[in-house]
């Protein structure tokens, strides 16, 4: 957990692998520095990130395997116990084991995250595809709509959607997904425009392939890369947005251990029990850092971090 959040000089979480730096001139340090050794060892940061990701997936899918205690029932003899060997993350004011709650919360928070990114990618992708492929007035109209939506900060847009939909994990996920639509639409459109002018698309058209065939067979597969890479980046942003909304109290009802609401519950015990706010937040940080790192590894252009 500590590896991605504390960039130490020996193994910086951000250290790009050798292929990463190859095509980003000007960003890398000179090749004959001591850091060359770090970079030659492929993927110290990346393997840590993948490790975190696999662990999180395990938490989300089989929470009982990774936690020794029940996340909802507390032991009144064990109230506000600091982190130790018995309770890794300590216990809360009702004697519930915080580690178990974080592990069980992973499935709620990460499910909402997947739903949000999936919704944003599908809806935004479809919009961008139509916009880029249709061109002309449809394109102009849709892109102006995207401009307007992007004038409103994502979190506020999500909150407006929640006002209409009501509270709950799924509603939070939908709200976050809606705030991602514009970004996905923009990237998909740009890709479709790029691909549509390629010679192989021209050839397919000239060869008599119908527009639907061109779209599905040629444009879609060839414009998917950057969209998927954006999805990976947005995954980290979605974790942040979902937990922020859950922190504000718009997520699942109280006993459910969503990551954001865990931090919110810990607020009342900040003076005596630092672990209640600090540790769930560190898990969020580790999650976001590792998804960013992974998304960078899968990005064909190896854009700058973040």
């Amino acid at each position: 957990m500590t590896i991605p959040s504390t960039p130490s000089p020996s193994a910086p979480s951000d250290a790009p692998d050798a292929p990463d730096t190859a095509d980003t001139p000007g960003t890398a340090v000179a090749p004959d520095t001591p850091l060359a050794a770090v970079r030659a060892r492929p993927g110290a940061g990346l393997s840590a990130a993948l490790g975190v990701f696999v662990l999180l997936a395990g938490w989300a899918l089989w929470p009982s395997l990774f936690s020794a205690h029940d996340p909802l029932t507390g032991d009144t003899a064990q109230v506000l116990v600091p982190p130790g060997t018995e309770h890794w993350f300590g216990t809360d004011h009702l004697g519930r084991d915080l580690h178990s709650r974080v592990v069980h919360g992973a499935s709620l928070t990460l499910r909402a995250t997947f739903l949000a990114v999936g919704l944003g990618a599908l809806a935004g992708g479809a919009l961008g595809l139509v916009s880029g492929f249709a061109g002309g007035r449809t394109d102009g109209f849709l892109m102006r709509c995207v401009d307007v939506v992007q004038a409103v900060p994502g979190l506020l847009l999500s909150m407006a959607v929640i006002t209409v939909l009501g509270f709950g994990t799924v509603n939070v996920a939908v709200a976050v997904g809606v705030s991602f639509v514009a970004a996905f639409a923009r990237v998909t459109r740009a890709e479709v425009l790029r691909v549509s002018t390629a010679t192989y698309v021209e050839a397919a058209r000239a060869g008599g392939v119908r527009w639907g065939g061109v779209l599905v067979r040629h444009v879609l597969p060839n414009s998917a890369g950057p969209v998927l890479s954006l999805a990976a980046v947005q995954f980290g942003q979605a974790v942040l947005a979902v937990s922020a909304l859950s922190f504000l109290g718009f997520g699942a009802a109280p006993p459910a251990p969503e990551w954001g609401s865990l931090v919110a519950e810990g607020r009342d015990y900040m003076v005596t029990a630092w672990w209640l706010t600090t540790l769930p937040g560190l898990v969020v940080v580790a999650t976001v850092l590792s998804t960013h790192r992974i998304s960078r590894a899968f990005d064909p252009e190896t854009r700058r971090p973040v």
Binding site: D14, V263, V284, V285, V288, H292, V306
Partner: peptide, 11 residues
């Protein structure tokens, strides 16, 4: 900077 944007504001 990547660490900065990975930290939830509320936390």
């Amino acid at each position: 900077p990547p660490v900065g944007v990975a930290m939830p504001t509320f936390w």
